[in-house]
Design a protein around this nucleic acid. Structure first.
Length: 824
RNA sequence: GCGACUGUGUUGGAACUGGCAUACAAGACGGACUUAAAAUCCGUUGCUCGUGAGAGAUUGAGGGUUCGACUCCCUCCAGUCGCACCA
């Protein structure tokens, strides 16, 4: 051991040893309790950023701590390596996506190893590897067979600049993230997953996830967007089909004064035929709507627009004749794409009615005398008493809603219905760098899945990257033409690839059995490890990734491939790393590169700082001075250990307590063991765990200079200190441990157990309050009961003087804490 | 607009179940060591008043519950994030 802490040498030394001896390799062991800790795997952009360091430092502390507690810990790492940036590199720099990606993966592997993370690297997966995406294709086929995958005409985001389809996440503020063109819409035939089949289960099972942040559950709940109401069918005059609307307010049916169709509604072409005097205006309106972006159309407070169709509908509850309009404030994607307009009780309908001069008929009266429902300034959406509604008059409108459900059903004009905001998941991408969809089009048999023994369907390499039009896969001369797996006739392969969110929806299961060539995983093995006990990642994945992964787990369960129905038992969403109050970004120029920090201070310092500076779920403000502080602390501990070993060498750590200083140090040591363990295990409060370790170190420095140095006790304290720090700063602790004469790794140690008798103290300082204000402090015996404490305190001269001749009204005594004397 | 979260010294943050507000760290200042600097070690350090012992106010603002509130309740303000014409 060098007398000065040399982070570069120490970290290199132990990383090499760990790489050679693989201390974190795990297998199924039914004699041990398992613990599966997982951090969201990175996209291989080539460079690690501070967000990664934070994410993986948190996971590593948990993994190391759980191992010390005796669990069989699965802690894997891999790469989410399909995706658009690789393809952009191909287009811009003519580098094959595979080369670009694999180069980046190798670079990032090196950087991850430099952080000293305790992964079982033998389980590493890369989603772009054929041995991985083979099983992606297998799963797709299982979903297809279950009826969960289907192809349909659907509207997609279309970038006119790049001449290609974009995923929702590639549309930023209504613009293409690459060329900044305004994104429009286009109808294409796309593969979809029936995630909506699971809408109810995805929603209901959120209640079975107490280990998830409330915030994430609320976001998913809103995204699924369940609402219950009624479907009601209106007759259209002179048309043979009825018009069905969805409403959550059937109590307002009597107040309907118009109807609105979404511009994409399928009836429109039929309802307003060629030759109709309204046709031209309608066509123009729909055309304008088509060319509007989501953002333009969806902008809040956008003035209402619309066009009359020339048609009228009949309100089934009262026979009223109401005009039918087309307006873009009604969305085809929600409900039935048509609404009943009740201007008196819906603000949007109110705005529309005002603009088009439509009647406003109130059907719910307010109890508030300041609101006259016959002269509304805005829609009245609150609770009230029914009016103008036939037999429902006089009822509370909430009761009327319930009555209305059965009434509608009896009359055969409607029924109770549930709708969701959640849409089916469009998974086709007109992209190259993704998993090929293993489907074949045969003119005779239609869509046929590739035979499972022929998987994987490999991505072709003879493709051109033009960045335009359809998938680059279509340009391959070897890929497209094939034969039908069913009838053997010439057939064509699907050229679209899968959304990369599919790849990351099941990787957590593949990690359980990552080298299996025969099956996607051995079910028994996967059932041993799954589900993930602790998942850690950024909150930006609260909806998409986490919802998709939950859907996959449920669907895979229904395919008989896995027992669990939820993938992630507990979820920790870590906050962003910011600097000077702003997000780290190139344009602001406030990026701090992990490699620079590792170079200057070492990985242990980077890890310690990032865990110490803020609680894990909050934003973390990067501070160069703070990093210095963490570095100083590690040095301070190192010196403490070094000086001790130089003087005393190795020896026994079984001690006897000799004096008050010894007793105090023993108390501090045990209190720290308890607090650090609890902070990591129960609260993920790494910052306070570290601060109490710092307090222990301060106490040890103080003890060292006091009379009666007890070598064995101090050795015990040092050993426990190094053990407790090892999850945070694994390299330097391993080095110090060795220096203390230990031959086994510190990471194989058991977490220190605190001793109850060490925590017992004879005296405790309590607070004396007078009318709730702190006046004095007093030492009393510990464990006095309420009465005993009150008696002792009230008997003391100090307190008598404090109270004086005032009248004691009440005394509140809290054992071992305080006594509050209420006087008049 | 709806929903969620956050608000504590100069700064990051602590206070876990209502019981000593400001732990731990950063910064600043002072001292020791040094030819000097760095490093290290020790000390001081939220605010106002007071020479001082000490006193007073204080956790975004205001109110409430309580013997006692950073913590619970109500109203409001500011910031961050998510959703957003969802029928």
């Amino acid at each position: 051991m060098e007398n000065k802490y040399n982070h570069a040498a120490v970290e290199k030394k132990w990383q090499d040893i760990w790489e050679a001896t693989k201390p974190d390799k795990v297998e199924v062991d039914h004699d041990k309790k398992k613990y599966y800790v997982l951090e969201m795997f990175p996209y291989p952009s080539g460079k690690l950023h501070m967000g990664h360091v934070r994410n993986y430092s948190i996971g590593d502390v948990v993994a190391r701590f759980k191992r010390m507690q005796g669990y069989n810990v699965l802690h894997p790492m891999g790469f989410d390596s399909f995706g658009l940036p690789a393809e952009n590199a191909a287009i811009q720099h003519n580098i094959p996506p595979a080369k670009w990606t694999w180069d980046n993966i190798h670079e990032m592997e090196v950087q991850l190893r430099q952080l000293g993370l305790s992964y079982d690297w033998d389980r590493e997966v890369q989603t772009c590897d054929p041995s991985y995406y083979k099983w992606m294709q297998y799963i797709f086929i299982q979903f297809y067979k279950k009826g969960l995958a289907y192809k349909k005409e659907t509207q997609v985001n279309w970038c006119p600049g790049c001449q290609t389809v974009l995923a929702n996440e590639q549309v930023v503020d209504g613009k293409c993230e690459r060329c900044k063109s305004l994104v429009g819409k286009k109808t294409l035939s796309q593969w979809c997953f029936k995630i909506t089949d699971y809408a109810d289960k995805l929603l209901a099972d959120l209640d079975n996830l107490p280990g998830w942040p409330e915030k994430v559950k609320i976001m998913q709940k809103n995204w699924i967007g369940k609402s219950t109401g009624a479907e009601v069918t209106f007759e259209i005059q002179g048309y043979d089909k009825g018009l069905t609307v969805f409403t959550t307010r059937p109590d307002t049916l009597f107040g309907t004064t118009f109807m609105v169709l979404a511009p994409e509604h399928p009836y429109i072409d039929d309802l307003i035929p060629e030759g109709s005097e309204y046709r031209a205006a309608v066509e123009k309106y729909i055309d304008d709507a088509q060319h509007m972006t989501e953002i333009e159309r969806g902008a809040a407070n956008k003035p209402k627009t619309g066009v009359f169709t020339g048609r009228y509908a009949v309100d089934p509850v009262n026979g009223a004749i109401v005009p039918i309009y087309i307006a873009d404030y009604v969305m085809m994607g929600y409900g039935t794409g048509a609404i009943m307009g009740v201007p008196a009780h819906d603000q949007r309908d109110f705005d529309f009615a005002k603009k088009f001069g439509i009647d406003i008929i109130p059907v719910v009266d307010s109890d508030d005398p300041s609101i006259d429902v016959n002269d509304l300034k805005e829609a009245f959406a609150a609770e009230g008493r029914m009016i103008n509604s036939g037999e429902f008059d006089g009822m509370n409108n909430r009761d009327a809603i319930q009555k209305m459900f059965t009434w509608l059903e009896e009359k055969g004009i409607g029924k109770k219905a549930t709708t969701y905001k959640l849409r089916d998941w469009i998974i086709s991408r007109q992209r190259y760098w993704g998993t090929p969809i293993p489907m074949i089009w045969c003119d005779d048999c239609g869509w046929v899945p590739e035979n499972e023994e022929n998987l994987p369907v490999l991505l072709p390499e003879d493709v051109e990257f033009t960045g335009k039009g359809e998938s680059p896969v279509a340009t391959s001369k070897t890929f497209v033409d094939t034969v039908c797996p069913k009838c053997g006739k010439p057939a064509k392969r699907e050229v679209d690839t899968m959304d990369t969110f599919l790849d990351s929806s099941w990787y957590q299961i593949r990690y359980c059995d990552p080298r299996n060539d025969e099956k996607c995983w051995d079910k028994e093995t996967a059932d041993y490890w799954m589900n993930v006990d602790q998942y850690i990642g950024g909150v930006e994945h609260a909806i998409m990734h986490l919802l998709y992964a939950r859907f996959f787990e449920m669907a895979l369960h229904d395919c008989g491939l896995i027992e669990a129905t939820e993938p992630f038992e507990n979820l920790l969403t870590q906050g962003m790393v910011i600097k000077d109050g702003k997000k780290m970004s190139k344009s602001i120029g406030n990026i701090v590169t992990p490699l620079d920090i590792i170079d200057k201070y070492g990985a242990d310092t980077a890890r310690l700082f990032i865990l110490f500076a803020a609680p894990p779920d909050r934003e973390l403000d990067w501070s160069d001075a703070g990093v210095e502080g963490s570095y100083r602390f590690i040095n301070r501990v190192y010196r403490l250990v070094y000086d001790f070993v130089e003087k005393y060498g190795s020896g026994s750590s079984s001690y006897t307590v000799k004096d008050a200083h010894d007793k105090e140090l023993r108390f501090r040591l045990n209190a720290t063991c308890k607090k650090v363990g609890d902070d990591i295990d129960k609260r993920f409060s790494f910052n306070t765990a570290i601060s109490s370790i710092m307090e222990l170190v301060n106490a040890m420095y103080k003890y060292k200079d006091e009379d009666g140095f007890n070598e064995e006790l101090f050795r015990c304290a040092i050993e426990n200190l190094v053990t407790m720090m090892s999850p945070f700063t694994p390299h330097v602790c391993e080095e110090m441990w060795q220096h203390l004469g230990k031959t086994e790794s510190v990471h194989k140690e058991k977490w220190p157990v605190w001793e109850a008798d060490a925590m017992e103290r004879d005296e405790v300082e309590i607070v004396i309050q007078l009318n709730g204000k702190i006046k004095k402090k007093m030492n009393v015996k510990t464990n006095l009961d309420r009465d005993g404490l009150e008696e002792e305190v009230m008997a003391s001269d100090e307190v008598k003087e404090l109270v004086g001749d005032r009248n004691v009204v009440k005394v509140i005594a809290v054992p071992d804490k305080l006594v509050n004397i209420v006087v008049k």
